[in-house]
Computed example of a mutant assay.
Amino acid sequence: MFTQIFDTHSHYTDSAFDENRDQVLDALPKEGIVHAVLAGTTLEDSAAGIALTRRYDYLYAAVGIHPETAGQQPADYLAQLERMAADPRVVAVGEIGLDYHYEGYDRDVQIRLFREQLDLAKQLDLPVIIHARDCTEDYVNILREMRPRGVVHCFSGSAETAREVLKLGMYIGFTGVLTFKNAKKALKALAEVPEDKLVLETDCPYMAPVPFRGKRCDSRMIPYTAEAAALVRGTDTQTILEQTCRNGERLFNI
């Protein structure tokens, strides 16, 4: 059995786990999972994540507003996030960022919320968890300007973008995408990431690795992603798991 598994980005509050959430979360430590971070997407989701950490001591929470819900927040959303972030089980602000994938999203509102939450994280001395999709120029420019510490999660950019992000001191997180047949770009980006800046994640219930693609994902599937990373990096799966666990603990001060 593999050990020292740190899932740095999960969504166990998602309705996909409603039917057997406790069963899954009870099982994870027995399968080598030592830590998992619950990424918040709304105020309600962030609060639900904190509540789960009360019941499972290997879980930690991040609080934040996902760009897909930008503009749906009350005027005092930053104050509410700040109050939640005072909880000792909160280790980051996230997931926050930009998403230009679908038409209809207000990019100006997304950028405003992204900047506001980056500023909050700096005030609170917390790392950030960055969501970035189809927005490379804007998000990298904002990171250059505001210089947060944290991780770009579910990295989908090019090797060139990875180098730019790494220059800013950010960590880079990879999901089960590394196992997909069309993962050439992700694998090239992975090759650019130094040992001490790499973390692994599921983004569960999404992004299940091969051979589970299309099914509900959970943290027990991370070794498949680690195996794909090990092949690129010329090492073994357990070594990758141990390296990325140490990196995650350093990133989130655990």
Results as ranks from 00 to 15, higher is better:
13 T>C: 11
13 T>L: 01
17 F>A: 07
18 D>R: 10
19 E>R: 14
19 E>G: 12
20 N>S: 12
22 D>P: 04
24 V>M: 05
25 L>Q: 04
26 D>F: 11
29 P>F: 05
45 D>W: 07
53 T>A: 10
53 T>G: 11
55 R>L: 14
58 Y>W: 08
59 L>M: 06
60 Y>Q: 12
61 A>G: 03
64 G>N: 10
66 H>E: 09
69 T>F: 14
74 P>A: 05
76 D>F: 02
78 L>F: 04
80 Q>V: 14
81 L>G: 11
81 L>Q: 10
88 P>V: 05
89 R>M: 12
90 V>C: 05
91 V>P: 02
92 A>P: 03
94 G>H: 09
98 L>V: 13
98 L>H: 11
101 H>N: 14
102 Y>K: 07
102 Y>A: 01
104 G>V: 10
105 Y>G: 14
106 D>I: 06
108 D>C: 02
109 V>D: 03
117 Q>W: 06
119 D>R: 15
123 Q>W: 08
125 D>Y: 03
126 L>G: 04
129 I>M: 14
138 D>T: 13
139 Y>M: 01
140 V>D: 11
141 N>D: 15
143 L>Q: 06
153 H>Q: 01
160 E>N: 11
167 K>G: 06
168 L>P: 00
172 I>V: 15
174 F>A: 06
174 F>W: 01
179 T>P: 02
181 K>I: 00
181 K>T: 10
182 N>Y: 00
182 N>P: 02
187 L>R: 15
191 A>G: 03
194 P>F: 05
201 E>Y: 08
202 T>S: 12
208 A>Y: 05
212 F>T: 00
217 C>K: 04
218 D>T: 03
221 M>S: 08
221 M>L: 15
230 A>R: 08
236 D>N: 13
246 R>K: 14
246 R>Q: 15
248 G>W: 03
252 F>E: 02
